Amino acid sequence: MTHKNTFLYAGLSAALLMGSAFAAQATVVTSIKPLGFIASAITDGVTDTQTLLPDGASAHDYALRPSDVKRLQDATLVVWIGPEMESFMTRTVSQMPAPKQLTLTALTPVKSLLIKGSDDDGDDHHGHNHDTENRDEDHHHGEYNMHIWMSPEIARRSAVAIHDKLVELMPQNKAKLDANLQAFEANLASTDQQITKELAPLKGKGYFVFHDAYGYYEKHYGLTSLGHFTVNPVIQPGAQRLHEIRTQLVEQKAVCVFAEPQFRPAVIEAVARGTSVRMGTLDPLGTAIKPGKESYMQFLTQLANQYQSCLKGE
């Protein structure tokens, strides 16, 4: 090999190494899986999307590992809801450069759609166990309901924000990112229309959910939740709250009570025992869904099917 060829080879190798290093680095990291569903639709064919929380983990009680901190620091873009929801990320994200982070609840188009948390709805859902009540309130996500991925419209606005950030960070991929956003918005609109039609007959059928995570979805599709067992799924509801729910179940105001894959407390079965109420499961994180360009639509549809299967009695 001549000196000139050696020089060219070395230069080419360095360029390839730099290119592969950028490819390895060009990763969008989302805090939770449903945000990964939205982001992966925008990044499809452009870059990799990863989720920080492993399946089965809850943002309510997660603690970052050193490997998680490294993934956040190495990411091209970090997408999260905000410190009220993922408090375990606050310190690490606050030390990152502003262009590398996207806090969804800080965005003006998202802020305008936030709904109040149930602590403000006048429902004494904590009962009178003051120790539990104080801890529960401490863990509630501030003034607003932070389960924003349950809203199809907030998801659309989040997708636009992710798209805009990525166009800034990798302008060479603008055409593909534009096409991905357009496809996401079209798919979301048709899925939303279909679900609206399917869930319409369920309006007025009362039910209880395990924890206060579904407000945006219920409001959007006009579902009739009678309440929830707990605000923070890590903390068991108090005796007074259970008595209130049991009374309503006995009076047949509710058709269903819904548990969750991560939380199947015996307390739900005990309260429902001896009543005609059915038991269902709602998965607020889409645990079994694989991230991809259609995954957010699959997530919305799966929730619709889970509501239907219990409320219809199928």
Rank of each mutant, 00 (worst) to 15 (best):
M1V: 07
H3I: 08
K4Q: 00
F7M: 04
A10W: 03
L12R: 04
S13M: 14
L16V: 12
L17Q: 04
A23N: 09
T27G: 06
I32Y: 03
P34Q: 09
L35Q: 15
I38S: 07
I38R: 01
A39Y: 05
A41R: 11
I42H: 09
D44V: 12
G45E: 13
V46G: 02
D48G: 06
D48A: 08
T51R: 03
L53M: 11
P54A: 06
G56S: 02
G56Y: 02
A57M: 00
S58T: 13
H60Y: 00
A63D: 12
L64K: 00
P66D: 01
V69Y: 04
K70N: 04
L72M: 04
V79A: 04
W80S: 01
G82E: 01
G82M: 10
P83W: 00
M85F: 11
M85Y: 08
M89G: 02
S94A: 08
M96N: 06
P97F: 03
P97A: 02
A98L: 11
P99D: 14
L102W: 10
T103L: 08
A106Y: 12
T108Y: 10
P109K: 06
K111E: 14
L113F: 09
K116Y: 13
G117P: 00
D119K: 01
D119I: 09
D123P: 05
D124V: 03
D124W: 06
H125V: 07
H126E: 05
T132D: 00
T132P: 02
T132M: 07
E133P: 01
E133G: 00
R135L: 02
E137A: 12
D138H: 10
D138Y: 01
H141D: 05
G142W: 04
G142P: 06
G142C: 03
N145F: 01
N145P: 04
M146D: 10
W149E: 09
W149K: 07
I154H: 08
A161N: 03
A161F: 11
V167E: 09
L169F: 09
M170W: 08
Q172H: 03
A179Q: 15
N180D: 08
N180I: 14
F184H: 02
T191D: 06
Q194Y: 11
Q194G: 04
T196P: 01
E198M: 03
A200I: 13
L202Q: 13
L202S: 06
G206W: 10
G206T: 08
Y207I: 15
V209T: 11
F210T: 08
H211S: 12
D212M: 06
Y216I: 10
Y217T: 13
K219S: 13
H220T: 15
G222K: 09
L223W: 08
T224W: 05
L226V: 08
G227W: 03
R241N: 03
L242F: 10
E244Y: 05
I245Y: 11
I245M: 12
I245P: 04
Q252Y: 05
V255C: 11
Q262L: 10
Q262E: 07
F263C: 00
R264Y: 05
V271S: 07
A272Y: 09
R273Y: 08
R273Q: 15
R273E: 15
G274Q: 11
R278A: 14
M279V: 14
M279T: 08
D283P: 09
A288Q: 11
A288V: 12
K293R: 15
K293E: 13
Y296G: 07
Q298V: 13
Q298L: 04
L300D: 03
N305M: 14
C310N: 12
L311M: 14
G313D: 13
E314R: 05
